[in-house]
Amino acid sequence: MTGRAPSGRVFALHAAVILGLLILNFVLPEYHRGVFSRVLVLAAFAMGYNILFGYTGLLSLGHAMFFAAGLYGAGLPVYHLDWSVAPAFIAGIVSGAVLALAIGFLALRTTGVAFMIVTLMFAQVFYLITLFFTTYTRGEEGLVIRQDLRHLRMGDLDLALTDPSLRYLIALVLFSAVLIVTLFIVRSPFGRSLVAIRENEERMRMLGYNVFTNKLAAVVLSGAFCAASGAAYALLFGYVGSGFASIQYSILPLLWVLLGGAATTLGPLIGTLFMFYIVDFTSGFMPAYLLVVGAALILLILFFPKGILGSIRERWAPWLP
């Protein structure tokens, strides 16, 4: 439990991570700055997933639909209706949150593996819908959002989201916002009740907690974070396609979170970074790189069965949130 964590150390750590990432914008080589921009956005996706999986204990195999809801919710209005970036971003988050509310309302009738399968199937439906409306979505081929539409305009200010430094900073702002909100939630009574539901749902019910409402709130929050990540991905990188709604993108956040450490605030970032770089590095020097990726995953989990940060917390740093 995180309740007794020394606040000072926790806040210092998170502040240091955000500051460190800020500094990286100015020192990273160009390619790696681009990588970090993408990873930071995707880490927000993973953190959103972690709210539900790590803290609430609900394993979803359908989070691609929330990411894709954000992606399409933001991308389609820009592409078809020439919306500007800010309202499109909000539209993306709203799409994800509304979808999460509806899905949560249905899927939370189930628990455990049934929840996993229900979310998987609803996500499959969402994926098929993006194909069914290929006329508007261009299906798996997807849409390119024109560069000149990807500008943040406020009064006289005109910021091109394609500028590498600005893009990095926006990704960092998104990441930091989700991180801080997550940290805040984890330390709040609401977050503690989520963890308590994960540990013993029956007891919480007997104690008079409305378990369903708490879980529904977690689903919506999680969906909104993932959608924010998807919306940012569409607007920052300019591509919207059905692939992001496929099962692969439901499994990836699970993998990222498990690698970094479920129910840790910073684990999702570590997992996402690890997965990116192991693929990026190994594929650069051998065609059969998936062999190494697979072996690395197995070795990593043998030595860190609770994920990198999860195992570190267990062994050395119990104060980690």
């Binding site: 699970l254 993998l255 479920a262 697979g294």
Partner: peptide, 29 residues
Amino acid sequence: VLRRLDYKPEATIVATIGLLYIIQQLVLT
């Protein structure tokens, strides 16, 4: 692998994803 992980559900997911990559790559090669 699995026995060493004590069949912990979460670790098993990661390990079997690793196994998936290995089998796929070997077959592809």
